[in-house]
Simulated assay, not measured.
Amino acid sequence: MLSLKNTSVCPFYAVKSNNSPPIIKMLGTVGAGFDCASQGEIEQVLSLGVTPNKIIYAHPCKQESHIRYAQAHGVQIMTFDSEEELVKISRCHDSAKLVLRLGVDDSKALLRLSGKFGAKLGSCQHLLQRAQNLDLEVIGVSFHVGCGCTDSKAYRQAISDAHCVFNIGEELGFKMTLLDIGGGFPGQNDFKLTFEEIAADINKALEEFFPPSCGVSVIAEPGRYYVTSAVTLAANVIAKKVIMEELTNCRTANRTMMYYLNDGVYGSISFLLHDPAQSTVSPYPHRKPKPDEPVYPCVIWGPTCDSVDVVVKNTFLPELQVGDWLLIDNMGAYTHCISTTFNGFRKTPIYYVMSRDTMHWIQLSCTHSLIKPC
């Protein structure tokens, strides 16, 4: 995912972003690991042939039954950010290999996480001492700069803070061997900060604080980065209404089109309600408009009875008819996996497509070990 001279950052795909089995199977085939947040996600990943050593249980606040499940199925690496979590782990999985989740500056992110998860830098020594007293093994540090990070320098500061925690842990006698730089990487090309800009600052920081000679393995938890652009939503126009607005100085009228789709914010497009990292969509007709075809102001609604269910409040499209299709790109992350069946509307079915060239490349890579495993 990110290269640094003789070392690399190994991806542990964030299952929560899109848990479709074919996606997990394909990523597992090409050597990715997996960031799981619950027993259910661990069960699914294991059922698809992933080995336990390719999983990090990256939720800092876990149910005891889920910890016991991880222990029983060989999942060793898991995160913590509090003394209470350490006590739970000592009861349920005392052989776990622990990663301290560090709270870092996420003020430049569109969706901040450190208010809910992550230990403050000043409390890390106490937590590491408590882990030592409980005879637990701490092997590294993780952090997350937030979703939709708009300043790549946030990664550098977080890596610097993690280095401080590494030093504390090593002074206490822990063998610190793992750095998890989390997620926050953009999944589409038009985001204000490019992946290449982020990678450049991460690589510089890793070279300064965690050079290859230090022997630390580095992983990340990309979700959007892998799947956002992989999915296009096809939504059907199920109803139409034409609003005529009379003009004051003449007898003609303006037309505003209102279209109702079979999917909306209670379905695949729910991120419009709660995810500032992806707050707009741009539907476009499946059929190619004629060059001289007029366009009209439109409001596009979802199918439910709720007036909150609006997909686009103001856009311009050629006139559509009931039965026409609109397409929406970049619909792979935090869409179908968190859709509901509110009002009795079914979840949108998923159809998986792969080009022959891509399939051939994956088959060759597996057969001839062309992909270097993490």
Rank of each mutant, 00 (worst) to 15 (best):
L4I: 14
K5T: 11
K5F: 04
N6A: 10
N6E: 15
C10P: 00
P11A: 14
F12M: 07
F12W: 02
Y13P: 10
Y13F: 15
N18V: 09
S20Q: 09
S20R: 00
P22A: 02
I23Q: 02
K25G: 00
K25A: 08
T29H: 01
V30E: 01
V30Y: 12
G33I: 01
D35I: 05
C36M: 01
A37W: 04
S38G: 08
E41N: 02
E43Q: 14
V45Y: 08
V50S: 13
P52D: 05
I55E: 04
I56T: 11
I56F: 13
C61F: 06
R68C: 06
A70Q: 03
A72K: 13
A72V: 00
V75G: 07
M78D: 01
T79K: 05
F80I: 13
S82Y: 05
E83I: 12
V87N: 06
V87G: 00
S90W: 00
S90M: 02
C92F: 03
H93S: 11
V99A: 11
L102D: 03
L110S: 07
G122P: 02
Q125C: 08
L127N: 05
A131K: 10
L136P: 04
L136N: 06
V138C: 03
G140D: 11
S142N: 08
F143D: 02
V145D: 05
G146I: 07
C149I: 10
T150K: 14
T150V: 12
D151M: 08
R156I: 11
I159F: 06
D161R: 01
D161Q: 14
H163A: 10
H163T: 03
C164K: 14
F166K: 15
E170V: 07
E171Q: 15
L172E: 04
G173M: 14
K175M: 06
M176L: 13
P186A: 04
Q188G: 00
T194I: 03
F195P: 00
D201C: 13
F210K: 08
C214D: 13
V218Q: 07
Y226E: 06
V231E: 04
L233V: 14
N236Q: 15
K241Y: 07
L247V: 15
T248N: 11
N249M: 12
T252P: 00
N254E: 13
T256R: 15
M257R: 04
Y259D: 01
L261W: 00
G264I: 08
G267V: 05
S268K: 02
L272M: 10
L272A: 12
H274D: 14
H274S: 13
D275E: 05
S282Q: 08
P283S: 08
H286F: 11
H286C: 07
P297K: 09
P297A: 01
V299F: 09
W301D: 03
C305T: 12
V308K: 15
D309E: 10
V310R: 10
V311P: 07
V312R: 06
N314W: 12
Q321I: 00
D324Q: 05
I328S: 09
G332E: 09
G332M: 11
A333V: 06
A333P: 03
K347G: 12
T348G: 10
H360N: 14
L364N: 14
H368G: 00
I371G: 03
P373D: 06
